[in-house]
Design a protein around this nucleic acid. Structure first.
Lengths: 248, 248
DNA sequence: ACCTGAACACCGTTCAAGT
DNA sequence: ACCTGAACACCGTTCAAGT
């Protein structure tokens, strides 16, 4: 049984972070951090479907059921792992004077971190991100957008748009990579081409890979252009009217 | 064993659609459509975690393993279910003369359809959407954006941005609703407030629910503003903010 | 072509017991 | 406070056999 039986813990995913912290370290020196690190490493190797408590426990040299002292369910492990990925995201100690550049950099950094662990995009999109590392990054984005003049609901919506676009993009991208991407891409391309009358606009999509990066960049720039345009204090966004965000 | 053993079928999620169609109907009149409908209904009741082959088979009055004649794995069932949700999305038989309005309407309609089946957002964000119903909707968006003048990679990136933002938003929104949302919201609010020094910008976020809709709307408008601004043939987008001069 | 039936390997979680 | 050990209920998938 977990310690301090769920004082205020609602049963949503992400709820690990809302419960009181469990004891620091046991006889085996088992901590949430060590567990999280092992989960990340096994997810990297086997993906979410291949994750099981028994092998994690084995790697940590404890009995499988021991894990239940430190977390309350398998789902908690995924929350720990996702937050560990966010920890890899560089967090500028202080913001620059260009909020738009800060947001753009955040988007690209977030994508990079999530791509390093291909399972993380899908997980991040399907559970509240309430871990301390994730919250710290959110705070950074909120601060940048607040400098742009966004407040209240519009601030929240702007920040959500930024995260959702990035996380959604990475989730889509990595969902292709779970199998043999090039052959999948080829099969889809043939399928669209064979049904060119029903899908005229999509019929001649490029079959080349390696376009994920440029396409993401352009997607991000679309949103950034909208942010720059709608920012209440557009004076603080040097690039608004004169030059639209770069297309790298 | 599944029929026509995987001629070109790559092992990604979404691959059901890339394999040759299985036989039409068996002795029990079992079809992919009937299976899909049952999966949707059980997902509505129990969510993805509660889905199991045995109860689906029972509801369809067949032996559990019979399902393997019609699909090749549990994962295929999820693909069928997601495409069935897309089928609920109204698809205008012909586009209007306002591409921006068409895209905006699509975004709101897609959100509405996905919210009807709270499990669908997370699934849609984590697998390629290659079903016929999903492709037909993609085609509609591509066509609208093509009218705006987007081509090639920029067309693909624009369409991806639209879907990814909507699907990502819904996935986030529904991930809160898997448990007791109001108490979760409350707990997070308290947590942020208790750590107001570390999260100054997020500290006084509204704790009210019912803001999902307005926030989504604003998020969508941010992207739409970017699309309008960057559209090569912006003449065809009547609703753009006239104050933003295009540079290129 | 479509479905059955038995069987296998596995997995998350429980609970009482140890120290 | 932390961990063990046994046990339970369940679940996706296989394969050979039926019609």
């Amino acid at each position: 049984m977990s310690p301090k039986k769920a004082v205020s813990g609602p049963s949503i995913p992400g709820a690990v972070w809302l419960r009181p912290r469990p004891p620091r370290r046991g006889q085996h020196g088992l901590t949430r951090e060590r567990i999280a690190a092992e989960v990340v490493s096994q997810l990297d190797q086997a993906g979410p479907a291949g994750l099981n408590l028994r092998s994690i426990a084995a790697a940590l040299d404890v009995h499988p059921t021991t894990l239940y002292w430190h977390v309350s369910a398998r789902d908690d492990l995924l929350d720990l792992a996702v937050d560990a990925v966010f920890a890899e995201l560089p967090l500028p100690s202080q913001p620059s004077d260009d909020w738009l550049a800060d947001v753009r950099a955040f988007m690209h950094n977030l994508r990079a971190a999530l791509l390093t662990h291909p399972w993380s995009g899908a997980l991040a999109s399907s559970r509240p991100l309430l871990g301390p590392e994730a919250l710290a990054r959110s705070e950074f984005v909120y601060a940048a957008l607040a400098r742009a003049g966004f407040t209240g609901d519009e601030l929240a919506a702007s920040a959500a748009a930024v995260s959702n676009l990035v996380i959604g993009s990475v989730a889509t991208e990595t969902s292709w990579q779970n199998g043999d991407e090039s052959s999948a891409r080829q099969a889809v391309h043939e399928h669209l081409h064979a049904n060119a009358e029903t899908y005229p606009a999509m019929a001649d999509l490029s079959t080349e890979s390696g376009r994920w990066g440029t396409q993401f960049s352009y997607s991000a720039d679309l949103l950034l252009a909208g942010l720059a345009q709608k920012a209440p204090s557009s004076a603080s966004s040097p690039g608004t009217n004169s030059q639209t965000p770069r297309t790298t």
